[in-house]
C-alpha cells in the first residue's frame, strides 16, 4: 500500500501524542454517558448517584418484577420486530426499484423515500397523530409499527442500494443462462450476495423502532407505551435507578445486535468476493 500523507507530518512524537489525546477525548465524550449509566444501574442506594456507594441488583429485580416495565419492553420488542420485517421487505423492494429501474421522476422518488431522515421527528409525530386520531387507531401496536416503518425504511433503502450498486448483474444473467428463472435467480444468487446489506438495513430498522420516542409519545395510549416512552415517564415521575438498569439492558442488546451483524458481515465477506 502506498502511504497516505500522514496527518501530522514533521512534529513527530509530540504531534502524534496530541492526536492520540484528541482521539481519546472524542471517545470519552461519546462513551462516557454509557460508563456512568452502567455503574448506577448496580447501585445499592435508591437515588441516582454517581459513583454508587454500594452495589446491588435491586433495580434489575425491580424492572423484572414491575408489570408496566415488562409490558413496555414486550410492546417495544414486538413493534420493533414487526418494523424490521416490514421495513426490510419494503425497503429492499424500493432499493431494487430505484437502483435497477429507469423511470421519470426517479430522483424525486429517491428523495421522497429518504425524506424521513430529514423531516424533524416532531413534525412526523404530529402528522401521524392527527391522521391516526381520525382513523381512531391511536395506541394500536400495529399502527405504531406502521409509523415506525416509515421512519425505518430509509435505512434499509440506503443499505440495500449500496450493495446493489456494487452488484454485478452479469451474475444474474449467468444464473438465467444456466437455467434459473427470475425467482430462483433472486433466491440463489442475488439475495445471498446482497444479504449483508439487507441484514444491516434490517438491524438499523429494528434499532430505529426500538429507540424511537417522539412518535411513540404521541400515538401510544396511556398505560400501553413502548419502552422509550415508559422511560420518559419514569424520568418525569419517579427518577430512580430502574431507568439505569433498563438503559444498561438496552445497551447490552444493541451491542449484541451489532456484534451479530458484524459476524454475519464478516462471514459474507469471507464467502464472497
Amino acid at each position: 500500500m502506498s502511504a497516505a500523507p500522514p496527518l501530522v507530518m514533521s512534529s513527530g512524537r509530540a504531534g502524534r501524542a496530541l492526536l492520540g489525546l484528541l482521539a481519546l477525548a472524542v471517545v470519552v465524550f461519546l462513551v462516557f454517558p454509557v460508563f456512568v449509566i452502567i455503574p448506577i444501574s448496580f447501585s445499592g442506594s435508591s437515588f441516582l448517584t454517581f459513583p454508587p456507594e454500594s452495589l446491588s441488583l435491586q433495580w434489575y429485580e425491580k424492572f423484572l418484577s414491575r408489570a408496566d416495565w415488562l409490558e413496555a419492553t414486550w410492546l417495544s420488542l414486538w413493534v420493533a420486530a414487526l418494523v424490521t420485517v416490514l421495513a426490510t421487505v419494503l425497503g429492499t423492494a424500493a432499493a431494487f426499484g430505484v437502483v435497477r429501474g429507469r423511470f421519470p421522476g426517479q430522483k424525486l422518488v429517491v428523495a421522497f423515500l429518504l425524506s424521513p431522515l430529514i423531516v424533524p421527528g416532531i413534525i412526523v409525530a404530529i402528522a401521524v397523530y392527527f391522521f391516526y386520531a381520525r382513523l381512531g387507531i391511536v395506541g394500536s401496536p400495529v399502527a405504531i409499527a406502521v409509523a415506525h416503518t416509515a421512519l425505518a425504511v430509509p435505512f434499509v433503502v440506503v443499505n440495500v442500494s449500496a450493495v446493489l450498486h456494487g452488484f454485478d448483474t452479469r451474475l444474474e444473467q449467468a444464473a438465467q443462462n444456466l437455467g434459473a428463472g427470475t425467482w430462483t435467480t433472486f433466491r440463489l444468487v442475488t439475495f445471498p450476495l446482497i444479504r449483508p446489506g439487507v441484514f444491516a438495513g434490517g438491524l438499523f430498522a429494528f434499532i430505529t423502532s426500538f429507540d424511537e420516542l417522539i412518535v411513540a409519545l404521541f400515538i401510544t395510549a396511556p398505560g400501553h407505551v413502548t419502552l422509550p416512552a415508559r422511560m420518559w415517564e419514569s424520568m418525569r415521575n419517579e427518577i430512580d435507578p430502574t431507568i439505569a438498569a433498563v438503559s444498561t439492558l438496552e445497551i447490552v442488546l444493541s451491542v449484541a445486535l451489532f456484534f451479530v451483524a458484524g459476524r454475519l458481515q464478516a462471514r459474507a465477506a469471507e464467502r464472497g468476493a
Binding site: 454485478d168 452479469r170 451474475l171 444473467q173 444464473a175 445471498p192 450476495l193 464467502r271 464472497g272
Partner: peptide, 9 residues
C-alpha cells in the same frame, strides 16, 4: 462471460 460471472458465494 468476459468477467466469468462465477458465483462468489
Amino acid at each position: 462471460f468476459q468477467s466469468y460471472a462465477l458465483f462468489p458465494h
